[in-house]
Amino acid sequence: MKDAEPNDARPSGQAPNPGPASLPGDLIYRHRLPVRVWHWTNALILLVMLESGLMIFNAHPRLYWGKFGANPDPAWLDLSGGDGIPFPGWVTLPSYYSLADARLWHLAVAWLLVLSLPAYLVWAVVGGHVRRDLLPRRAELRPGHIWHDIAAHARLRFPHGEAARSYNVLQKLAYGAVLFVLLPGMILTGLAMSPAMDAGFPVLLDMFGGRQSARSIHFICAFGLAVFFVVHIVMVILAGPINEVRSMLSGWYRLPAAREGRP
């Protein structure tokens, strides 16, 4: 099934008009400007937040559940073995040990995330992006359908032609989880670690079961985002990086042809 309403406010006089039944090889207008702007600013924000966050974690590489947690208390994750600095310089910002500098970056760039995520979510919900492009349809959520998509991805068979026009169910679920679970989770658990915000909004503490639980969930959500980031990059490379990157820069996407039986 395909959208009754095309999501392409196509600029006039550009590119061939594929018409309703687009063919493999056709260029379609896939990503609107807000999606593209959000994608690249968010990519940069996440990179800085992950790298500086790993440096901050290096300062105390133990995680706890509950209201308090420090060296004498039991940790559910303890990476303080070895030289005590678990994340190496090539994944941290800065690459040399500096909690102070990492906090400078983390807390400044956090502002960009805190301001841009709500703005994008409002646009995505009100503007119909969520309903049209991200919300899985009932049929897509059948276990059989999801399993079929997983199996196809595992065999590196990606949708082509008309089926590649919209996101498949795995993409919808992944992008939805990032936008509505992981990123809001990062922001709320981040705020719950601020002693000042906890004073003003103690609900932040109750929501996550204490400051140290919030810190643990912050790390778990960050891990989820890092996994997403890696899988996302691998998928882009496998699906055709030129076409994929171009579509996220210009909006125009060439519907991929089938790998076998290609004319």
Binding site: A59, H60, L99, M193, P195, R211
Partner: peptide, 8 residues
């Protein structure tokens, strides 16, 4: 709350 991340 220590700047390093732990709490007591």
């Amino acid at each position: 709350d220590c700047v390093e991340g732990w709490s007591a």
